[in-house]
Simulated assay, not measured.
Amino acid sequence: MRKILILLAITLTMASCSTTNKLSNNAPSPENTTISSGRDGSSFEKAIVITEKSESKGVGAEYEWLRKNYPGYKSQGQSLTYDQKKPYDIIDIITSDGEAKSIYFDISNFFGKF
């Protein structure tokens, strides 16, 4: 399991360098995402919905969203989990202000699709 997580982390890092993000119509654009919008990534219920259809583009979209919404952040780790049989990535970051955050991404549109 540890080897899979390491491989996933490497793949995520590589893929994030050259892809763009797409968010679902019911999720606000990255520039307009605020806590009041309902999709700030702070929980499963408020997870950022990624609409990409392949893993490489989907992972890149996650990191693009983070770059746009938390410039200067530092990644602290990532985990794959399920809530109500739906896959989510949770990316732990430290913001440029030093605040620790866990950002939830709904990856059901691309998870397991290459």
Rank of each mutant, 00 (worst) to 15 (best):
Ser54Trp: 06
Asp40Ile: 05
Glu31Arg: 12
Ala9Arg: 02
Asn109Ser: 11
Phe44Glu: 03
Thr33Arg: 11
Thr33Pro: 05
Ser75Cys: 13
Ser16Asn: 02
Ser96Trp: 02
Thr51Val: 08
Lys101Ala: 03
Ile48Pro: 14
Ser24Cys: 15
Thr19Cys: 07
Ser75Pro: 10
Gly98Trp: 10
Phe114Pro: 10
Ile35Phe: 13
Asp89Gln: 00
Met1Thr: 08
Asp92Val: 07
Asn25Gln: 02
Asp97Ile: 06
Tyr73Gly: 01
Ile94Glu: 10
Ala15Leu: 11
Ile107Glu: 00
Ala9Gln: 03
Met1Pro: 04
Gly38Asp: 06
Ser16Met: 01
Pro71Asp: 06
Ala100Asn: 14
Ser37Pro: 06
Ala9Ser: 10
Gly72Thr: 08
Lys113Pro: 06
Cys17Glu: 14
Leu12Met: 13
Lys3His: 08
Glu31Leu: 09
Gly41Cys: 07
Lys113Met: 01
Asn25Phe: 00
Gln78Tyr: 00
Ile93Tyr: 01
Pro28Leu: 07
Tyr73Val: 14
Ser37Phe: 03
Phe44Pro: 12
Ile4Arg: 03
Tyr88Pro: 12
Asp106Ser: 02
Ile4Asn: 03
Phe44Leu: 07
Arg67Met: 01
Ala47Trp: 00
Glu99Met: 05
Thr81Ile: 06
Lys74Trp: 00
Ser108Gln: 08
Asp83Ser: 12
Gly60Glu: 11
Gly60Pro: 15
Asn69Ser: 15
Gln78Met: 01
Leu66Arg: 03
